[in-house]
Design a protein around this nucleic acid. Structure first.
Length: 573
DNA sequence: GCCGTTTTCGGCCCGACTGTTTTCAGTCG
């Protein structure tokens, strides 16, 4: 049984939880969590990385962690981990995920009341067994009841593509109701970093009238429940169970605060460690000298400049080497949405899209694009009303005619051809060679094992007419795991064959993800950012793909569809 | 457990908030 890096990370996190309940050295606990983070941010197969010695020198993975990974890889288990598991009942760690309940409480409840699981805790609370414990009172008991309620209704993280428009609406409505009390306003947190999923939404604001602003915030149409309401922070719950926090900060601290609340946590820790080495201190109010003199805080850029770092865009703040790069002034010049000149993955009424070719052209031109490719599904994908060979060829003829009537814009004929279970394609080469752009993609048979899936996709990429591999892992966030596929091998073939890899902008796909997009860049494999739009509005999803690419450190030069039409045509020849 | 342009030992981010407390511990982000 092969053990994945995510599995190892999960084991490390569980060890950290056990150790925290035991009351171990907090820094040792952090070390396990940090190692788990580091593993999750690596791209590639763990065993291969280990064999090639690539794990050495990864920050957070030292001698001890390396040995543990080695043992896990060769035996599939870890004695120290098994020992901890034997030491505690199996349901204990889960109690930690209840809000308000931390390791000390779990330990106390376990030892004094015999609470071994979330259900045990529920019963203990109901029979008021907690309020007489040392350090506990009626109020704490009440808070645990609340925590349990939140735990029971706990929702999974929401998609970036859902959160972004929502926060836009929240800010809009807030401005409508309280514009005169709002000075600066900006989302922070993982939303601002462009993470693919969002836990809760943080909004920062400077205000001349905080209490009236908070009144307005807590009476927005989105409010289902008010969790907290104060002068500096209020929290509300939307009907969907999403928490939105609004924080009021002083104008002179806005930069430091937005830096602080944007995170990520490990980026900030790294930054503050760096500050300490320079005799400085960073908090959410500013950057201070040892004498307590404030030297920055109003603008976010200053915080970085004080530490002799160039400004780090929010999307890079994941502690994946961005601070070191900023130090050497080697940060990438991240691409922007304005750099995008076209879209290669578009569906129309020809298959399962909702709008016509003409509609898509119109919207693309409004966006300032210079080209699009029409890539409807192929015949075997019946659910999407896939085109027959004859259909796609007559569509290509129609596109030719459309092109003859267009100035300064080009429509490419194409297809999103299905990669069948055996790696053959749904259309014959005779048909494919008559199309401008051939995208290959897997839509069925996701449960194949890694060897089968990898060779299936590689076989498809070896077809001379395939230009793009769409949504390479097939994941659907919150619905379907990435399929088992060795992307390192796939990338090697893509590179040799000159196939472009897609960053798909659909909110639930974002596939390739940030980590793999960065790996593609490292291998100098061209990326295309596509929307996979099934209607004209969806062409605007491109921003999600761009954000994902930015998180993958991509620059304009790494992305094919930043090329203007003339350069693209030269390339396609 | 990790790590080193002061260190191979002795540090390890920082503050708010809350509750149970007469000065602090626990949790959170």
């Amino acid at each position: 049984m092969k053990i994945s890096k995510n599995k190892v990370a999960q084991i490390f996190r569980e060890i950290a939880d056990f150790l925290s309940i035991k009351g171990e050295n907090p820094f040792r606990i952090r070390a396990y969590e940090k190692a788990a983070d580091a593993l999750e941010h690596l791209s590639g197969d763990l065993e291969e990385l280990y064999r090639r010695g690539k794990l050495k020198g990864v920050p957070g993975i030292g001698k001890g962690m390396l040995e543990k990974i080695e043992v896990l890889l060769s035996t599939g288990t870890l004695p120290a981990y098994e020992q901890l598991r034997a030491e505690f009942p199996p349901g204990l760690v889960e109690i930690l995920s209840i809000p308000e309940v931390g390791p000390k409480t779990v330990k106390l409840l376990y030892e004094k009341v015999g609470v071994k699981s979330v259900d045990d805790l529920e019963m203990a609370v109901q029979s008021h067994k907690l309020r007489n414990l040392p350090g506990m009172g009626a109020k704490t008991e009440e808070n645990i009841v609340k925590g349990l309620k939140l735990y029971r209704m706990r929702r999974s993280r929401i998609l970036l593509g859902t959160a972004l428009p929502l926060v836009g609406e929240v800010i809009l409505e807030l401005r409508e109701r309280a514009s005169s009390w709002i000075e600066k306003i900006s989302p922070a947190g993982s939303l601002r970093r462009g993470k693919e999923t969002i836990g809760d939404i943080d909004i920062l604001v400077t205000s001349s009238n905080p209490s009236s602003l908070m009144d307005a915030f807590t009476s927005l149409s989105f409010v289902n429940d008010i969790l907290a309401k104060g002068e500096t922070k209020s929290s509300i719950l939307t009907p969907q169970g999403l928490q939105i926090d609004l924080r009021v900060v002083a104008p002179e601290s806005f930069g430091a605060a937005i830096q602080y609340f944007t995170g990520s946590k490990s980026h900030n820790i790294n930054l503050r460690e760096r500050a300490i080495k320079r005799g400085l201190k960073i908090n959410e109010y500013g950057v201070f000298t040892q004498e307590g003199k404030k030297i920055a805080g109003e603008r976010e850029e200053e915080v970085y400049h004080c530490l002799d770092l160039s400004f780090i865009p929010p999307e890079l703040r994941e502690d994946r080497g961005e601070i070191e790069a900023a130090e050497e002034d080697k940060l990438p010049h991240l691409l922007t949405e304005e750099d995008i000149k076209g879209d290669f993955h578009i569906h129309t009424t020809g298959s399962d899209g909702r709008d016509s070719i003409e509609d898509m052209i119109q919207r693309a031109r409004e966006k300032g694009y210079q080209y699009i490719a029409i890539t409807d599904h192929s015949s075997s994908l019946k659910v999407a009303r896939g085109l027959s060979e004859q259909d796609v060829l007559s569509q290509a003829e129609r596109i030719k005619k459309i092109n003859s009537s267009l100035n300064n814009f080009r429509v490419f004929s194409g297809t999103e051809v299905d990669i069948r279970a055996d790696g053959t394609l749904d259309f014959s080469d005779e048909v494919l060679k008559k199309l401008d752009i051939v995208i290959a993609a897997v839509h069925t048979g996701f449960k194949q094992d890694e060897r089968k899936m990898t060779s299936r996709v590689i076989k498809a990429l070896q077809n001379p007419y395939v230009k793009i591999l769409a949504h390479p892992t097939g994941r659907l966030l919150g619905e379907r795991e990435a399929c088992a596929i060795d992307l390192n091998k796939v990338m090697q073939v893509a590179k040799d064959r000159g196939v472009w890899l897609e960053v798909n902008s659909q909110p639930q796909r974002l596939d390739l993800n940030d980590v793999w997009a960065r790996e593609a860049k490292r291998r100098k494999i061209p990326i295309v950012i596509n929307t996979d739009a099934h209607n004209k509005q969806s062409l605007d999803l491109i921003k999600l793909g761009v954000v994902t690419a930015r998180r993958g450190w991509l620059e304009k030069e790494d992305v094919i569809n930043t090329l203007p039409l003339d350069k693209l045509l030269t390339l396609l020849k």
